[in-house]
């Protein structure tokens, strides 16, 4: 069973929460997260449960105009 992180398949973590997924991903530097295209505040990672096929976006600061 997989979740889609930034467009790529990743194994569903155990327990199936956003915080468990992020612990496995260990994003480098500052980041923010959306689950199924909805922003998840940092304090809600533990409570955010993820299911197979869900989409998670992890974004970082980048140059922009």
């Amino acid at each position: 069973m997989f979740v889609i992180v930034n467009g790529d398949n990743h194994p569903l973590p155990e327990p199936p929460t956003l915080s468990a997924l992020l612990a496995r991903l260990s994003p480098l530097g500052p980041f923010a997260v959306a689950h199924n295209e909805e922003f998840v505040p940092r304090g809600a990672y533990d409570a955010c449960r993820i299911s197979p096929g869900d989409r998670v976006d992890v974004v970082h600061p980048t140059a922009g105009g």
Binding site: N6, G7, P27, L28, G29, F31, A32, D57, V58, V59, H60, P61, T62, A63, G64, G65
Partner: peptide, 12 residues
Amino acid sequence: LTVSLRRQLSAS
């Protein structure tokens, strides 16, 4: 300064 958000690209 204007900035943006993107998925992380390696070595950017």
